[in-house]
């Protein structure tokens, strides 16, 4: 499993914390229940905090907390579960989240482009050569019909610029 950001493998600086005690130092990624239970304490930390949401946890629950979060990770329990694409768009467009938006779980290479278009900028992927595969997957399409959460121009915009 590799974490890819901007096409490069990067080290995951967040420690994924589940039930056990939260370490006193370092960046942590907690689940929603932990966040809700220990919100004040987590907000007081000097180092970055992230929250991972399951696919049935709507990001609206984090809307007010987002300015204090460095990372939101959205889980794909199976690649077929496409809820997080809409969550990503809402996080970016509606709740104006500007931190890292990470795709975790069953993330297929063929889906990276869709995820990126919806606003994800970090991807946990399973691959022998993550950087090569990431590049290949993102090169699949250069034309898009519709606007989404990225800055790619739609065919409509390009047509009317001619």
């Amino acid at each position: 499993m590799a974490l890819v950001k901007q096409g490069k493998i990067v080290e995951d600086s967040f420690q994924r914390v589940t039930d056990e005690a939260i370490p006193t130092t370092g960046a942590v990624l907690v689940d929603l229940a932990t966040w809700q239970a220990q919100r004040e304490q987590l907000k007081g930390r000097a180092e970055p905090v992230g929250v991972v949401l399951k696919s049935d946890e709507h990001p609206e629950v984090l809307a007010d907390d987002l300015p204090g979060l460095a990372l939101v990770a959205l889980d794909f329990p199976t690649f077929r579960d496409g809820r997080a694409y809409s969550y990503a768009r809402l996080l970016r467009d509606r709740y104006e989240f500007t931190g890292e938006l990470r795709a975790v779980g069953d993330v297929l290479l063929e889906q990276l482009l869709y995820m990126q278009r919806c606003g994800f900028d970090a991807f946990e992927i399973e691959s022998d050569d993550p950087e090569r595969d990431f590049e290949t997957a993102l090169a699949d399409f250069t034309v898009w019909y519709q606007p989404a959460g990225d800055d790619r121009a739609s065919a409509l915009q390009l047509r009317h610029r001619r």
Binding site: F79, R80, D81, G82, Y85, S86, R89, Q111, L113, Y114, M115, R117, C118, F141, W144, Y145, Q146, A148, A155, L156
Partner: peptide, 14 residues
């Protein structure tokens, strides 16, 4: 049709 083709948000509907 154009809006829906390769629409990144709705490729994995229920």
């Amino acid at each position: 049709r154009q809006y829906s083709i390769l629409n990144p948000e709705f490729a994995y509907l229920p």
